[in-house]
Design a protein around this nucleic acid. Structure first.
Lengths: 170, 170
DNA sequence: TTGGATTAGGTAGCAAGTTACCTATTGTGA
DNA sequence: TCACAATAGGTAACTTGCTACCTAATCCAA
């Protein structure tokens, strides 16, 4: 049990909570971060939301020609949700959804040339945003945090798989 | 630091995640983790969702008598959203929403005695879940990751405030 | 003490997420 | 080759999240 400083400005933390376990603290921190990240991130771009930007980034990482489900898996959401999100993204003209002629089940996510202009438009502001977000965090800190999060994510995937196997057995 | 370029149709994409800048990697990891955490977490409890559990935990941390907005701020969501979530939580009987007689604007979040039985019911499975999630992560790792996430969260709050100030000036 | 600022919350509309269950296509082994 | 499993996605109903904008209660300073 260690000392905990809960990250809130306008909420007084009762002293009996100093003993929260680090694991739960990390947990709450990740949840609150994800929640607030959406709010803040939606202010970075005019045309698209923060989640749409992350789907766009993911699709670009997975080029060439990822399917809807591949992007969904990369982002960590269901294919149903990703499809809806990608349809909205397609409406902005940044991507194009195309049936794969080689496998009629798949829908491919293709980036359009509009992405280049989009990227140029936000190059400065997005890198400024990243600089602000990672201010005072060194490369060493980052690398250390990355190791822990990698392990955490791997463990989560393991749990996820054991759950879906259980359900498959019913 | 490597440059991240959002690709157009004719730009080659790094196929390996290790080529991505650490900051973007951490970013994507946090997002994917939060997404998958909801899916996995919803399997931990029968009666309530993962988000509802986190709201319940937050309300218990903020006792005595936090308001809806205080819980919302702690969790990192809007008060409108938190109110809806707490209404569903109230329907399960674990909390009670009450007008504050001393300040008629506020709605207080009170835990009911049912929480105790709830905690007992899930004591084993939830601690087993935590053990699985943090497997092979040492206390030192945890502490290191926590320092980074604390700084990251603090930076995010700073950006959040500068945004709301900008909007206030319009 | 009154009038403006602040704070708490309500309403509405939409984006993003889930599970459950369905169809269609593709892959595979007897 | 043909039945069946696996894969990709569609539909529906629901929870969780947001912003914009509203009212009501409280606070505070002239």
């Amino acid at each position: 049990m260690k000392q905990v400083n809960l990250p809130t400005d306008n909420i007084r933390i009762p002293s009996d909570l100093r003993d929260i376990e680090d694991r739960y603290y990390l947990f709450g921190m990740l949840t609150a971060f994800a929640n607030r990240m959406q709010t803040v991130g939606d202010n970075v771009f005019e045309e698209i939301t923060w989640k749409q930007w992350f789907a766009l980034l993911s699709a670009s990482i997975l080029q060439p020609n990822p399917s809807v489900s591949q992007v969904a898996d990369f982002v960590g959401t269901s294919h149903q949700n990703m499809k809806q999100l990608l349809l909205r993204l397609q409406a902005t003209g940044l991507i194009r959804l195309e049936k794969d002629k080689a496998d009629l089940r798949r829908t491919l996510v293709k980036l359009t040339p509009a992405v280049e202009a989009f990227e140029q438009k936000y190059q400065q502001s997005s890198s400024h945003f990243m600089d602000s977000l990672f201010e005072e965090i060194t490369d060493e800190d980052l690398a250390a945090a990355r190791l822990v999060l990698d392990q955490l994510y791997q463990n989560l995937r393991t749990i996820e798989k054991s759950i879906s196997q259980q359900e498959g057995n019913i």
